[in-house]
Write a protein that binds this DNA or RNA. Sequence first.
DNA 1: AATTCTATTTAGGTGAGCCTAAATTTTATT
DNA 2: AATAAAATTTAGGCTCACCTAAATAGAATT
Lengths: 220, 220
Amino acid sequence: MYSLAEENYLKAIYKLSESNDDSVTTNAIAEVLQTKPASVTDMLKRLADKQYINYVKYQGVNLTERGAQVAISIVRKHRLWEVFLVEKLEFKWDEVHEVAEELEHISSEKLIDALDRFLEHPRFDPHGDPIPSKKGVFSTMSFKPLFDLPIGYVGQMCGVKDHTAVFLQYLDKLNLNLGKEITLLERNEYDNSLVIRINGTDVVVSKEVAKNILVSDKNV
Amino acid sequence: MYSLAEENYLKAIYKLSESNDDSVTTNAIAEVLQTKPASVTDMLKRLADKQYINYVKYQGVNLTERGAQVAISIVRKHRLWEVFLVEKLEFKWDEVHEVAEELEHISSEKLIDALDRFLEHPRFDPHGDPIPSKKGVFSTMSFKPLFDLPIGYVGQMCGVKDHTAVFLQYLDKLNLNLGKEITLLERNEYDNSLVIRINGTDVVVSKEVAKNILVSDKNV
DNA sequence: AATTCTATTTAGGTGAGCCTAAATTTTATT
DNA sequence: AATAAAATTTAGGCTCACCTAAATAGAATT
């Protein structure tokens, strides 16, 4: 068994090692968990003792097999609960995160299996992120940032990189949801903004926005 | 905000004061929470400081308005989650308790409102216990122990007093679920066991069992 | 009313998970 | 290579929620 705090550390380390393949630093963890580096060092020692992480003083950490399993199971629970909230309880995609942060710590395996069945084994969450299987396998998704596509490309919106409510609400305003067809019409050389067509309407999105929208990649 | 431990204490005090209208004793709380009386005294001081309980040394405690609100909201969450588990995730009624013990501490009010709507505002949980409204009002149920009814009475099973898995599983074996029609045929004077008819089959139930089965009371 | 038994509280201690301030190690810069 | 800056760890402390052992209050018994 692991405590709430331990679960949150493991999840944080997992997320950090996803984006950056080097070992994860103390400060980065402190930043994510909104705590102090000294507190992180404290916990890292405990997690290392329990064999959840490999920890070398001053050198950062990475998860052991055991630790990764725990982290992935939390990600699985988080994303399944998000699907539940959106599909069944009619939450909007910008409203699910905080609640799922609590629900992900419910321990019952029977519960999560039943939930998965009830939701008919969804493979992606409401933001397009893949839901790992019980065994920890992710559907590989070959999604690309809208920003990286060539002019003329027609694709489907499949995910977001930024999960903040403010970004998601902005996409709502643009009428952009998961599954929507997007046509890339023009690239403005000056500021790298893009003109895209959604539902027959042309809109301009900034570089920042285009980098955070993921579209299906049919190997363009 | 209140901690997990605080919530569990408030719920325990609430449950204890339901069954016994005097003030609740330290030992009784320790017993329910499987902890030591000294730890209870510790927490009682903190809860009294925070105005959740009225506490007089050596005299036991009872909940303040504030404390009762918290306790009732936890009961509401617990019972709604139990309905969810049984109705949607196909849990059996003897399997829901432990999981609901965890789920009841999820704080989001929006979540619980949405869940209540999703479940179509159930008024009773899978054991027949009333689900308080958001404002803390319980449907008054005039259920009586099967044991207290007169011979010849025909009623519906509406609840149980014992919530243990072993008791519930025994009822399953007798084919006794919520809503089932029960006819009271005979009372054995020697050991106070009863003969009842369920689905056309006559079965004998002991005094202990009959006292833990609640049936609808049409003012017999 | 005195005594015994039981319930409760106090005193003092523990670990988890956090903190600040100071020390140390690593990295970056000159 | 020496030094400055940044990252990390150590030291020492805090609160919460628990513990045991000892003290005390209240209830029951004689």
